[in-house]
Design a protein around this nucleic acid. Structure first.
Length: 485
DNA sequence: TTTTGAGTTGTTCGA
DNA sequence: GTCGAACAACTCAAA
C-alpha cells in the first residue's frame, strides 16, 4: 500500500458501489480523498443545463451524505480541473489521482491534458471504465471501422465475454489525516433561483439509493410487461433509469447483472432475456457513446454530410410555441409540458415531438437538441445526439426521412383513452377519448360542454399535418436531387 | 470478390 | 376494414 493519499475525482460516477476508480484507490492508497470539481466552462459547448444542474445538486448532496457516513467527507471545489487538482495535491500530499472516464469530446481532450500534466508532476494517474459495458475503441467491424448500424454493433458487443460482475462498495474508506477545505454545495449555484422544481422533487429521488430503488421497482416488470407497456405514455412502464445512468448513480454493469440474476432466478433462458427489449436499450446507450467517440462532430453537425444542405427553416416563434407545448397537437403539447414540469418525457413521446419539430415544422434538429439539453434531467450528450439525428434522418442507422410521425395516430394508438393528454393538457381534460387527440375536428356540441374553445382555451393546430408533411417530403426530395459539397 | 438481404420505434395509398 | 407496396440510401455481414 502507498504511503500517500489517493484522490478519487468523481465526475459522472456519483456512486460508491461498482466504482472502479474508488475501489482501486481505496485498495492502493494510504487514504482516499473523494473530490468533485465544478467547472462547467470545461465542458465545451455543452455545460450541464438547468435541469441537469438541479439533479447534480441533489446527487452531490446524496453522495456527500453517504461519504460522510463513512467518515470520509467529499471535497467540493470549483475552478479549472488541473489547477484544482494541483492545489489539492499540494495541500494533501496525495500521490495519485484516479477517475472514471468520460466520453464527451471536450472532456476527452481536457482529461488527456490533465493526465499528461499530472504525470509530469510525478503523480500516478489512472483512469477506469465506470460508464460502459464495452469501451468504444474495443468494438470494430470487420474492416476495422466503427459500426454505423446498431444491430451488428450490438451483436459484436454481446459476442464478447459478459461484463465483469459489479464491484462492491469499499468496505472501509480511510480518510486523510488532516481535514481539507470544501466549498459548500449551495455555493456552486446549481439549484435554480426561481422555484420551479417542486414537481421534480415529487417525481424523483436522485442519488445512489434512489437509483437502486428505481431498478428494483423496474426489474419486476422488465421481462413481463415492459415489451407491451414501454410505448404507453399513459402507463409507468419504462425503466426511468436514464438520469441515474447518466450521472453514474448506477452503472450499466449493475443493471446488466441485476437483469441477469433476476432472469436466472425466474428460470428465463439466456437467449430470451438477452434479446429482451430493455436489454437492447442498454445496447443503444452503448451505441450512442460509440458514435460520439468515433464521430465527435455529431453534437453539432449531421453524420450524413449531405444533410448540411438540407433546407431547414429556423423559426424562433414556432420553436417557442413547441417549447411551451402550444402547438395545437395534444400529444406534442402533453409531452413538451411533461418535460417542462418533470424534467423528463416518455420515450415514445420524445420521438413524436422530435419528428414534429424537424419534419412538420422543418426547424433544425440542433434547436430541438439544445432545448432537450437544457430541460431534460437525463440530458446526455451521446444519447441526445443520437436521438435527434435519428429523428431528423441524418444520423447513423437513422429513421428514413419519410418516416414522419402523425401525432394524432400516435396518440390514438399509444394513449387510447387520452389519459396522458388529460394529465398534461388539463384544458382538454373533459374531452372524450374519441376527440381528445383531434379537438379541432370535434363538433361544437362536444366542445361546448367540455369547456373547450379552439383558438382560445386551446390553440388551433400550428400547421396542418397533410401540407407540412408534403413540405417535408419535398424538402427531402430537393436534398436528393441537388448535388453539392 | 461480388451479390444479396436485412436493418428500433411509420404513414399513406390503392387494391 | 385489411393488406401489401411504396416511400431512400447505405452499411454490414453472410452467402
Amino acid at each position: 500500500m502507498s504511503t500517500t493519499p489517493y484522490i478519487v475525482w468523481f465526475r459522472l460516477d456519483l456512486r460508491l458501489t461498482d466504482n472502479p476508480a474508488l475501489s482501486a484507490a481505496s485498495k492502493a492508497g494510504a487514504s482516499v480523498i473523494p473530490l468533485f470539481i465544478w467547472d462547467p466552462g470545461e465542458e465545451g459547448k455543452w455545460p450541464p443545463g438547468a435541469a441537469s444542474r438541479w439533479w447534480l445538486h441533489q446527487s452531490l448532496a446524496s453522495l456527500q451524505a453517504e461519504l460522510a457516513r463513512r467518515g470520509t467527507p467529499l471535497v467540493i471545489r470549483s475552478g479549472p480541473a488541473l489547477e484544482t487538482l494541483r492545489s489539492l495535491v499540494h495541500e494533501s500530499g496525495a500521490g495519485a489521482v484516479y477517475w472514471n472516464r468520460r466520453y464527451e469530446p471536450a472532456l476527452i481532450a481536457r482529461d488527456q491534458k490533465v493526465k499528461e500534466a499530472l504525470q509530469q508532476d510525478g503523480m500516478q494517474v489512472q483512469s477506469f471504465n465506470g460508464a460502459l459495458l464495452r469501451e468504444p475503441w474495443e468494438i470494430r467491424n470487420k474492416t476495422g471501422n466503427p459500426f454505423q448500424v446498431f444491430t451488428p454493433f450490438w451483436k459484436t458487443c454481446l459476442a464478447g465475454p459478459d461484463p465483469l460482475p459489479p464491484l462492491p462498495a469499499p468496505a472501509t474508506l480511510r480518510p486523510p489525516s488532516s481535514p481539507l477545505s470544501s466549498t459548500p454545495l449551495a455555493q456552486l449555484g446549481l439549484e435554480p433561483r426561481i422555484h420551479w422544481t417542486a414537481t421534480m422533487r415529487q417525481t424523483w429521488m436522485p442519488g445512489e439509493v434512489g437509483a437502486a430503488a428505481e431498478l428494483k421497482r423496474f426489474l419486476s416488470t422488465a421481462f413481463t410487461s415492459y415489451g407491451d407497456s414501454r410505448d404507453r405514455p399513459d402507463a409507468n412502464g419504462t425503466s426511468r433509469l436514464s438520469p441515474f445512468l447518466h450521472f453514474g448513480e448506477i452503472s450499466p454493469r449493475q443493471v446488466f447483472a441485476a437483469m441477469k440474476n433476476h432472469a436466472e432466478s425466474a428460470g428465463l433462458p439466456a437467449s430470451e432475456w438477452r434479446s429482451s427489449q430493455f436489454h437492447t436499450e442498454l445496447g443503444w446507450r452503448e451505441f450512442a457513446h460509440h458514435l460520439l467517440f468515433h464521430f465527435p462532430h455529431t453534437p453539432d453537425s449531421p453524420l450524413r454530410p449531405e444533410f448540411q444542405r438540407f433546407p431547414w427553416r429556423s423559426n424562433p416563434e414556432w420553436l417557442k410555441i413547441w417549447q411551451r407545448g402550444m402547438t395545437g397537437y395534444p400529444l406534442v403539447d402533453a409531452g413538451m409540458r411533461q418535460l417542462w414540469a418533470t424534467g423528463w418525457m416518455h420515450n415514445r413521446v420524445r420521438m413524436v415531438v422530435a419528428s414534429f419539430l424537424v419534419k412538420n415544422l422543418l426547424i433544425p434538429w440542433q434547436d430541438g437538441a439544445a432545448w432537450f439539453w437544457d430541460t431534460l434531467l437525463d440530458a446526455d450528450l451521446a444519447s441526445n445526439t443520437l436521438g435527434w439525428q435519428w429523428s431528423a434522418g441524418c444520423g447513423a442507422d437513422a429513421a428514413p426521412f419519410f418516416r414522419i410521425f402523425n401525432p394524432v395516430l400516435q396518440g390514438e394508438k399509444f394513449d387510447p383513452q387520452g389519459d396522458y393528454i388529460r394529465k398534461w393538457v388539463p384544458e382538454l381534460s373533459r374531452m372524450p377519448a374519441r376527440w381528445i387527440h383531434r379537438p379541432w375536428e370535434a363538433p361544437r356540441e362536444i366542445l361546448g360542454p367540455c369547456k373547450v374553445t379552439m383558438g382560445s382555451t386551446y390553440p388551433e393546430p400550428l400547421v396542418t399535418l397533410f401540407s407540412s408533411r408534403e413540405r417535408a417530403l419535398d424538402a427531402y426530395q430537393k436534398l436528393k436531387t441537388s448535388k453539392g459539397p
